[in-house]
Simulated assay, not measured.
Amino acid sequence: MTTTASRPGPGSRRDPGRRRALLEAADRVIQREGPEASMAAIAAEAGISKPILYRHFGDKSGLYQALAERHTRKLIKGIRDEFSRGDPIRDRTRSTIDTYLATVSKNLNLYRFLMHRASAEDTATHSAMSTMIRDVSRELAEVMVAEGELPDRTRAYVWGHAIVGMVQTAGDWWLDHVDEVPRETVVDGLVDLVLGGLPAAASGARSADEPG
């Protein structure tokens, strides 16, 4: 008997080139129309009907998740590449934050579509985006532990999640003021906050390990 787990998922037998072309059509519409881009507009851009669009991805949720995976993979790679370089910690922190802000501002409508509309409409997409944020936080914490910036693993994880949350929230604010506030100003402020607080966090970790 064939079980559900053994059956291929929606669209799994379809041409990957066609799937990629549909995602590119979705990208164009979202970049042009913003977070309110409709599935009908995406289907029209691709030259197909909305039911056929859904058939390729299973449903609207499947399309949202495919778009999230497509773009978060690129974003995470850029962040990872910058923070994994052998440069001094200040240079890496600066380039990593700058890479993040530059990427989301260049793809503003896609970012808002994925982080706000799709995540609000679809719990699976919200979960995927939350997982991406946690993964970046965890990687940052592991780097800080490995490099001795924060030898206490628990504090490193707290700090890693705090940094990522701070950068994301500050970035969201900046995206609403992008014509008024230079990106460099935001990067400078965030770097000062991160590197100004890191020594205190490390000192607190060492004090906690010392006998009373």
Rank of each mutant, 00 (worst) to 15 (best):
T2K: 14
T2M: 15
T3S: 15
T3M: 07
T4Y: 12
T4W: 09
A5T: 13
S6C: 06
S6K: 09
P8H: 05
P8E: 02
P16Y: 02
P16F: 01
G17W: 00
R20S: 11
A21S: 09
A25H: 07
A26E: 02
A26K: 01
E33Q: 14
G34L: 07
A37Y: 09
A37N: 03
S38Q: 03
A43Q: 06
A43T: 04
E45F: 02
A46M: 10
G47I: 13
K50P: 02
P51T: 04
I52N: 12
L53H: 05
R55D: 14
H56D: 07
H56L: 02
G58T: 10
G58S: 09
G58V: 11
K60I: 05
K60M: 10
Y64I: 03
L67V: 11
T72E: 01
R73A: 15
K74W: 08
L75K: 01
G78V: 03
D81W: 05
D81G: 03
E82W: 05
F83S: 08
S84Q: 11
R85S: 14
D87P: 00
P88T: 08
D91H: 11
T93W: 05
R94M: 02
I97D: 00
I97L: 08
I97T: 05
D98P: 01
V104C: 06
N107T: 00
F113E: 00
H116W: 11
R117Q: 09
R117C: 01
A118P: 04
E121W: 10
T123V: 14
A124L: 13
M129E: 08
S130C: 04
S130W: 04
M132L: 01
R134P: 00
R138V: 13
E139I: 04
L140P: 01
L140Y: 09
E142K: 11
E142H: 11
V143K: 12
M144H: 10
V145L: 13
V145D: 13
A146L: 14
G148I: 09
G148A: 06
E149N: 08
R153H: 13
A156Q: 04
A156H: 04
Y157P: 00
V158G: 03
W159P: 00
W159K: 06
H161Q: 13
A162K: 06
V164L: 06
M166R: 12
M166W: 12
V167T: 12
A170I: 07
D172S: 12
W174P: 03
H177G: 01
H177T: 01
V178E: 14
V178K: 13
D179Y: 06
V181L: 15
P182D: 13
P182M: 11
T185Q: 13
V186S: 05
V186T: 12
V187R: 08
V187L: 09
D188Y: 07
D188S: 10
G189W: 13
G189Q: 11
G189H: 12
V191Y: 10
D192R: 15
D192H: 15
D192A: 15
L193Q: 10
V194Y: 01
V194L: 01
V194T: 03
L195M: 06
G196M: 09
G196A: 05
L198A: 10
L198H: 11
P199L: 10
A200Y: 10
A200V: 11
A201Q: 12
A201Y: 02
A202Q: 14
D209K: 14
E210N: 12
